[in-house]
Amino acid sequence: MAIEITNTNDLETLININDEMTIYTVLEHKNCLLTHLQAGQTLNIDLSAVSEIDSAGIQLLIFLKKTADKLGSDFNLLHHSQSVFEVIELFNLTDFFADPIVLPAEWK
């Protein structure tokens, strides 16, 4: 499974996405991720293993973020991979997601 779900505790879920986030996968990802988005809970998504992301992937993240804001749950993106970072940067969405981004030294 490309998506690895770890329930750290009752209120917090960590999801590792070990997959590309593109038009080919967004439907599957959405169905999976949305179920973990619940009021009052925290959803952390680890993006370190996202090899590729396209506009559809970004759109999904935007959708999740908006949905989370509406539900009042916490939605955090962690460990952005380089490709995710680039797109978020390109689309000027850093402020929107408001996640701390760590820039590893080895990125080009």
Partner: peptide, 21 residues
């Protein structure tokens, strides 16, 4: 670059394969 996400629908209306951007 401004990305307008207003058009991204909420809830079940959202179809991840459609483009709202």
């Amino acid at each position: 670059l401004l990305l307008f996400d207003k058009a991204v629908p909420q809830g079940d209306e959202f179809d991840p394969e459609s483009c709202y951007l």
